[in-house]
Simulated assay, not measured.
Amino acid sequence: MSLRISDAVVWQETAEGVSLYHTETGDFRTLNESGSRIWMLVADNGEREPVVSELSGEFAGSNTAMLKRILTDVDEFISALVKDGLIEEHLS
């Protein structure tokens, strides 16, 4: 499945993280460092697997437990963004 940022979202990277504004719902939020990193990887790549792979390489190394935790956390975070209409997921 491919991911893309919704056309209804205006966003920018700031010193505090990534700030998002959903123009249709009025939802405004600023993502923390981890959320911002995931957002930028989605914006650059558009696929779940490369996002997880990149973060795993950065933070898990060969630690299997950490790899599983990253996979779970990233999937939950992306799923929440999809549910909130900030990211759209499409069949590739």
Rank of each mutant, 00 (worst) to 15 (best):
E24K: 10
N63C: 06
E24A: 14
D27R: 09
T30E: 15
G57E: 08
A60T: 08
E58S: 00
N63M: 00
E47M: 15
V52H: 05
M40Y: 11
E33P: 01
V18G: 12
T25D: 08
S34Y: 11
L41P: 05
G26C: 11
F28S: 04
E49S: 13
E24C: 02
E33D: 15
R29N: 11
A60E: 05
A15V: 04
G35R: 01
T23R: 05
V42A: 15
R29T: 06
V42I: 14
N45I: 13
F28W: 05
T23H: 09
V51H: 03
E49C: 04
H22A: 13
E33A: 15
D27C: 04
Y21G: 03
F59A: 00
Y21W: 05
L41W: 14
H22Q: 04
E58Y: 00
V52W: 00
N63V: 02
G26L: 14
R48V: 13
N32T: 07
L55M: 08
H22D: 11
E54L: 07
V18W: 03
Y21T: 04
G57N: 09
E16W: 01
S53M: 11
T14M: 13
G35V: 10
L55Y: 03
T30C: 07
E33I: 08
F28Y: 11
V42R: 04
G17A: 09
E33V: 08
E24N: 06
T23K: 05
E47Q: 15
S19L: 13
E16G: 12
M40R: 13
N32Q: 06
L31P: 09
V18M: 04
E24D: 15
N45K: 10
G57I: 01
N32M: 01
G61N: 00
G46C: 15
E58K: 00
R48D: 15
F59S: 04
S34A: 08
G17K: 00
V42G: 01
S19N: 10
A43G: 02
L31I: 09
A15M: 06
V18H: 01
S34T: 07
W39F: 14
R29D: 05
S36P: 13
S56D: 12
E49L: 08
L31H: 12
Y21E: 10
F59R: 01
G17S: 08
T23C: 11
S36A: 12
W39M: 04
S62H: 03
E33T: 12
N32D: 15
E49G: 05
E33F: 03
D44C: 11
T30P: 01
A43D: 09
L31S: 14
A15S: 12
